[in-house]
Design a protein around this nucleic acid. Structure first.
Length: 873
RNA sequence: GCCCGGGUGGCGAAAUCGGUAGACGCAAGGGACUUAAAAUCCCUCGGGGGAAACCCUGUGCCGGUUCGAGUCCGGCCCCGGGCACCA
């Protein structure tokens, strides 16, 4: 082996070795245990960033580790290739999204290859290829047949200047990002997937996912949000009936039917038909409705905005008392969620309480506190008002606890047809229509006479033209007759093709199935999916904890119900990687769009008061001062990614991999800093030198474990302890940083041991082999070279993971910590086999401990076997 | 606003089931080697006191449970993620 470690030479040699032997190409093999190691595929944004390196190194460590444990390992890679950034890039530089995307894929593929991941590249896929997205279209049509896909209206952000629909990300403080125009809500027809049909199963099946982190399961359960309650009908009063020129009712859902007698107002959404009718004859109300219809559709905005309302002057009737109740329009009630109406119980709901105070509405106490905290609800609000208690002022339903009250009220409502018990989910159906170009076309044909028809299967795929360049003024597909002009499959007359495309979450909801059979031209999936799925390990960012992971679970269940797969859940084990954060710097010019600057280009200095000043030199305006917005996940939109390329060029892929794995455990959020990269590089060089020094003196004699000196036994124990720790940390705990620390400690121990005797060299040889093998999943290239340096002809990746020798771990004596009143006062060494009485005596006998006991009587003495004694005086 | 995480030295972190707080590394300071630099090796390194032995104190803040709390419970503060059209 070479004396000097040359990362570039070592890495290209190792990669060539694997490539030539097609080491990571795998076939289905029913005789071997399979291990499908899946990482979330990247969006081809242009360059890898450290979040990708972290994600794919975690996957690679597990793939290589499991392979060395004897599994048939599949680790695939692909591209989540449709999406908004390609259109944005097209707008700024005139390149078609397809070209931009494919260039990025080519570049990033090379970056991934330079990092030496054990990927089967023969299965690579990109979601923008017709051979992939045709199956989106095909399955969508099957869903349409089953009624899982359907059409209804939905609300979108509308930019009135560019006359285009904007993504939430493109709405900044209520204005369009390019035009600065105030955004309006607009209702348009869209396609939806009926995920709520699966709500119950998606919720219940979380219990069958022991390999998922609790925090993800909790988030999903809360997102689905099952609540038991009542649907209650408030019939129109005569005034409302007159305005609506029909009979009707406001329908609400509530989990607090026990408070029905506390209803003092009704709140409806601005888009509600009753609101719209009432607005026609009331200009002030109409203006308020208009105001509500502007602004954001985002839940975060709706929830934080000031709660405002205006009376309609109309009334509905209380289902029990028949009393008229005033109907208000409120900006916090959303039409898209439930029936667009809620009952207002200011006595026992905090939001209603504030609304009532502000608008001078009556507050009625209808629940008596179970703990006697209050008699009557009055200002200010206290949390106890919202708690369960016993009903009062509720007519025949007074004096009941929560559950019996709800049961009695629901039964009474059912009798009169004015309500019933119902289960409601917070989860809403998944709207998949996007008024955008760079996505999978929705395979629908609109015929003036025959209506909306599915594109016949034999005409699939509906191919997206790849040469268009969006300009920000709406979907270019809608301006391209060659795309949208078509023939009605039913009547043969000219018809118009749907120009909306699918949400890119559709693409990512099943790509992991396609990897099993990416070359299959005649079906969405084939029998190979049955071999590989479910994925044994899925790895990806915690930011996908809800949407992507929930959609993938839903999609899998739909495919199961269509008989396409046998599995119900796609991912057996989930590792949610913490985000790699970096500083965000921005500059808001007096006019136009906010610009973001990469932290690498920002210079920070201190002003006279010690405050920080951040500056960037720009070609067009010279030195400008930028604002530090804080830390955020590395993303293209905030331009705070760190390209690993320079790190790889300077130190090599192994150092980059080792550094990111050593920085923290994978689930933890990581604020980016390259401090410490020197240490990773240094450690690899030290390992190289240790192996070189060892083998340059010739290969050792055979190890004879019975003929070791105490020091040699210590060395051997250190090696096997490190192996045991690394095996457990990688295989079970997934704490790669402490596995690395254990191997560092081992190398330190090897360095301290100067034993040059034949058995001393044999022990060192074993220890070095353990260090090289245990580190190999993390730094595979250098370990590949060192393995050959240690005298092996084989490729390390084809070796079996070493076994811990239990005999090597045996210790004669153990150190026991002695506390007096919980404070550390001494340490005693006792035989490993010592019983409790011996330990107790040794502890009390310790001179230093006695000083602290003094002449005080021992009141209590706790012995923790093998660890600690606590003496209480 | 709601849901989910996190907060430990100058920095990244460790402490796996309530039992020695700071393993392993970075940075810094001191020293060795060198004409010099780099690299490498050795020593110091939470704060306070002390010549030292050692003592006191310390895991975001306030309170509690326990022989013993970074870890469990209650209340807060701050940071990050998600909130359905960024991916």
């Amino acid at each position: 082996m070479e004396e000097i470690y040359d990362a570039a030479a070592v890495e290209s040699a190792a990669q060539e070795y694997w490539d030539q032997r097609h080491t990571f190409e795998v076939r289905e093999d029913s005789a071997r245990a399979k291990y499908y190691c899946l990482s979330m595929f990247p969006y081809p944004s242009g360059r890898l960033h450290m979040g990708h390196v972290r994600n794919y190194t975690i996957g690679d460590v597990l793939a290589r580790f499991m392979r060395m444990q004897g599994h048939n390992v599949l680790q695939p890679m692909g591209w989540d290739a449709f999406g908004l950034p390609a259109e944005n890039a097209a707008m700024s530089n005139g390149v078609p999204p397809a070209k931009w995307t494919r260039q990025n894929i080519a570049y990033m593929r090379n970056q991934l290859k330079s990092l030496g991941f054990a990927i089967d590249w023969t299965r690579e896929l990109a979601t923008c290829d017709p051979s992939y997205y045709r199956w989106n279209q095909w399955l969508f049509l099957r869903m349409l047949e089953k009624g899982i896909a359907y059409r209804k209206t939905g609300i979108v952000n509308w930019d009135p200047v560019d006359k285009t629909v904007l993504a939430n990300e493109q709405v900044i403080e209520g204005r369009g990002w390019r035009t600065g125009a105030l955004i309006e809500k607009r209702e348009i027809p869209m396609y939806y997937l009926n995920i709520t049909r699966y709500a119950d199963e998606l919720l219940g099946a979380l219990d069958d996912l022991p390999g998922w982190p609790d925090r993800v399961k909790t988030m999903q359960a809360n997102w689905i949000g099952r609540s038991e309650g009542c649907e209650i009908v408030f019939p129109y009063a005569p005034d409302t009936r007159a305005v609506m020129s029909a009979d009707g009712a406001l329908k609400v859902f509530t989990t607090r039917a026990d408070t029905i007698f506390g209803v003092t107002f009704m709140a409806i959404a601005a888009e509600h038909p009753v609101a719209l009718e009432a607005g026609k004859s009331n200009p002030r109300l109409n203006a308020f409705i208009d105001e509500c219809r502007r602004g954001s559709v985002m839940e975060a905005d709706v929830a934080t905005q000031e709660k405002r309302g205006m009376r309609t002057g109309l009334h509905v009737l209380h289902p029990f008392t028949g009393e008229p109740i005033e109907v208000w329009v409120a900006n916090y009630v959303l039409m898209g969620y439930g029936e667009g109406a809620v009952m207002g119980v200011p006595g026992h709901d905090e939001r209603d309480f504030e609304f009532a105070l502000k608008n001078g509405l009556p507050i009625v106490t209808v629940v008596r506190s179970a703990t006697g905290v209050y008699d009557e609800v009055r200002e200010p609000w206290i949390p106890a008002y919202g708690e369960y208690g016993v009903t009062v002022n509720s007519g025949e339903f007074s004096g009941l606890e929560f559950k019996p009250a709800v049961a009695a009220i629901a039964a009474a409502l059912e009798k009169t047809g004015l309500g019933r018990k119902r289960i409601q989910y917070r989860l809403r159906d998944w709207g998949i229509s996007r008024q955008r170009y760079w996505g999978c076309p929705i395979p629908i044909i609109h015929c003036a006479e025959c209506g909306d028809l599915p594109t016949p299967d034999e005409q699939l795929p509906v191919v997206l033209p790849e040469n268009l360049v969006p300009d920000g003024s709406g979907n270019p597909l809608a301006k391209t007759p060659a795309f949208y002009e078509c023939v009605c499959p039913k009547c043969g007359k000219p018809a118009r093709r749907e120009t909306d495309t699918m949400d890119t979450f559709v693409d990512s909801s099943w790509y992991f199935l396609r990897y099993a059979c990416a070359d299959q031209a005649n079906a969405m999936v084939d029998e190979r999916a049955a071999y590989w799925l479910p994925a044994d390990q899925y790895i990806g960012g915690i930011e996908h904890a809800i949407l992507h992971l929930l959609y993938s679970r839903f999609w899998t269940k739909v495919m199961r119900d269509l008989g396409l797969v046998k599995i119900s859940e796609p991912f057996t084990n989930l590792l949610t990687q913490g985000m790699v954060l970096n500083d965000i710097y921005s500059y808001q010019p007096p006019e136009g769009r906010k610009r973001y600057f990469n932290p690498a280009d920002v210079h920070t200095r201190r002003d006279a008061d010690g405050g920080e000043i951040h500056e960037v030199t720009t070609p067009e305006s010279g030195l400008i001062r930028v604002v530090h917005e804080g830390l955020g996940k590395m993303s293209k939109s905030e331009n705070n990614g760190v390209d690993p390329e320079s790190l790889v060029a300077r130190f090599g892929a192994d150092t980059a991999r080792l550094f990111i794995m050593f920085a923290s455990p994978p689930e933890q959020t990581l604020a980016w800093s390259d401090e410490g990269v020197q240490g990773a590089s240094r450690f690899i060089r030290r390992l190289w030198v240790a192996v070189y020094d060892h083998v340059s003196k010739g290969l050792p004699t055979k190890l004879d474990t019975r003929a070791l000196t105490p020091a040699e036994r210590d060395m051997r124990r250190a090696a096997h302890q490190a192996l045991a720790k690394a095996t457990d940390d990688i295989g079970r705990r997934r704490h790669f940083n402490t596995a690395i620390a254990a191997i560092m400690e081992l190398l330190n121990a090897i360095g301290r041991c100067g034993d040059a005797s034949p058995q001393g060299r044999a022990v060192r040889h074993e220890a070095l082999e353990i260090a090289v093998m245990a580190l190999s999943p993390i730094t595979p290239h250098v370990c590949h070279a060192l393995w050959q340096g240690l005298g092996h002809q084989t490729g390390l990746i084809d070796e079996r993971w070493p076994e811990v020798d239990p005999a090597a771990l045996v210790q004669d004596a153990v150190e026991i910590v002695v506390q007096v009143n919980g404070k550390l006062r001494g340490r005693v060494s006792v035989p490993a086999s010592a019983d409790e009485a011996t330990i107790r005596e040794a502890a009390i006998a310790d001179e230093h401990v006695r000083k602290f006991i003094g002449d005080k009587p021992i009141r209590k003495l706790i012995v923790v076997a093998g660890k600690l004694v606590n003496i209480v005086v």
